[in-house]
Computed example of a mutant assay.
Amino acid sequence: MTEQQNINYNRIAEAIAYIKNNFQKQPNLDEVAQKINLSPFHFQRLFSEWAGTSPKKFLQYTTIEYAKILLKENQATLFETAHETGLSGTGRLHDLFVNIEGMTPAEYKNGGKDLIINYSFSESPFGSIIVASTEKGICYMAFVEEKSNAFAILQSHFPKAHFKLNFDAIQQNALYIFTHDWSKLSQIKLHLKGTDFQLKVWQTLLKIPLGQLTTYGTIATKIENPNASRAVGTAIGSNPVAFLIPCHRVIQSTGIFGGYMWGNVRKTAIIGWEGTKAQANF
């Protein structure tokens, strides 16, 4: 990310944080622009370029009421309703993830011994990311602030693996998710390290359609363990693949967006960004 891109990202992130914290007041364009020291015209243009929609529409997508409406309208039939309305068909994000493979018990136990993991750093609409892959698929992806610390965290997930700084075709295909028409992408394969319970939760997350939100309790019901909401939350918090496994689409039953491993502002930004894509494709 260039210095100017970084400045722009930080400005938009600050604007999103302000909108999120003041949504009940419905701040207008001038108010938000003043908070980040830009003219309303410059702010409108910069925000629209970055988020793909106007600040006013983005505010609508990211308010708590928006979250509550989505939940109220779908609830137990979230996936079915989304399919019937065409949202999952137009975005078809979860359809790309046809193959999800957990590491063997031996691989899981020995910390990735003998695994060769390629990794690289790239840019996304939501900041810098680190992405890593084995010969079987994407094994790790995270938003990063500092590269050396990000690599250390990756190593901690696979302490005995062999790492190569290499941007391979598997990573490239996965990162197209940010910039290409999703209906034209190739299958994205995941090679994940987790317990059977975690893998089941992560696989269920892949079925949440673009532009839709769900709750921890709904996920627990979907995996046929309705009393496991807390365990589901823990598994979601252990998600090793940011964005591709959309844990950002899970919120509290009250409609509050809740926490996110890679920052609450980023979660809000992603939800709004996906909301605009879903609306455009509907």
Rank of each mutant, 00 (worst) to 15 (best):
44 Q>A: 11
208 I>F: 05
121 F>R: 06
212 Q>F: 10
15 A>T: 04
266 R>T: 15
161 A>V: 09
121 F>A: 07
199 L>F: 06
234 T>N: 10
171 Q>N: 00
116 I>S: 14
136 K>D: 12
23 F>N: 12
239 N>G: 05
195 T>K: 04
138 I>H: 05
256 I>T: 03
162 H>K: 15
197 F>H: 01
147 K>Y: 08
42 H>Y: 05
204 T>N: 11
107 E>I: 03
224 E>M: 08
185 L>P: 02
62 T>I: 15
216 Y>E: 06
212 Q>H: 13
97 F>T: 02
214 T>E: 07
60 Q>L: 10
34 Q>P: 00
181 D>C: 02
38 L>T: 03
32 V>W: 06
27 P>Q: 11
245 I>G: 04
215 T>Q: 04
60 Q>H: 03
183 S>Q: 15
52 G>N: 07
280 A>R: 09
245 I>A: 06
109 K>W: 06
29 L>D: 07
68 K>E: 10
198 Q>C: 03
1 M>C: 03
175 L>D: 02
265 V>F: 02
119 Y>L: 04
184 K>R: 14
100 I>F: 01
186 S>A: 14
5 Q>A: 15
194 G>D: 10
73 E>T: 09
167 F>P: 00
57 K>W: 08
129 I>K: 11
13 A>R: 14
166 N>I: 02
106 A>L: 15
130 I>E: 07
86 G>F: 01
121 F>T: 08
65 E>F: 04
245 I>F: 06
254 T>I: 01
131 V>G: 03
164 K>M: 09
256 I>H: 01
185 L>W: 03
126 F>C: 05
196 D>C: 00
276 T>P: 00
268 T>M: 04
186 S>L: 12
251 I>Q: 09
216 Y>L: 03
253 S>V: 13
89 G>H: 11
168 D>G: 04
71 L>N: 07
278 A>Y: 02
140 Y>N: 11
77 T>E: 02
48 S>A: 14
